[in-house]
Write a protein that binds this DNA or RNA. Sequence first.
DNA 1: ATTCTGATTCTCT
DNA 2: GAGAATCAGAATT
Length: 203
Amino acid sequence: MPRAELAIEPVDASARLLGCTLEATTPEGIVAARIVEVEAYRGLDDPASHSYRGRTTRNRVMWGPAGHLYVYFVYGMHFCANVVCLTDGVPGAVLLRAGEITSGVELAQQRRPAARNHHDLARGPARLASALGLAREHNGVDLTDPESAVRLYGSEPVAAEHIRSGPRVGVADAKDAPWRFWLDGSRAVSTYRRHEKRQRRRT
DNA sequence: ATTCTGATTCTCT
DNA sequence: GAGAATCAGAATT
């Protein structure tokens, strides 16, 4: 995917990233996932963003050029992956929250023995990173370079009527904006069950 | 079916 | 020294 298409506001990049494919090559093999759920994180005006309090060693990749991968370590055991957006010097990123494994299913299953079914393999940000084998060594890789260990492939932009949005997950901020985006109906979305239940109650 | 808790280490205050 | 953009398994209703 061309870097220019990601050098935009995180909220806009979020919509653009849905449906795209993230592919990771490791010594064990290749796993790819179609992105079905993301969250936008802005810069100095977003209290929930890692870059809110300025540049640090941890968040430095968020301040770099668009199209690079920002990987961070959380809760003492998990990794989460983001696509950096905006231009060099302006922080912003999109957290990849869930995907559908499109190739390398066997390896993904090996890495995620707790997954109950296919859509469980990469349902959740740490699960997605785990299924693709993403870890600290991938922090900062250029996703637009075909030679990189991790690549991002674009798709036709998804039509707005297939995109749903809501508040971000795991963000305590009360006045939270609807900056989580997902593909309507995808079973790999982290809140699929809850969402379906609400739909059923309405009918 | 829903809610609770333990795991485990890194980062910034 | 606190808390974290989470997950899995156990406990509880």
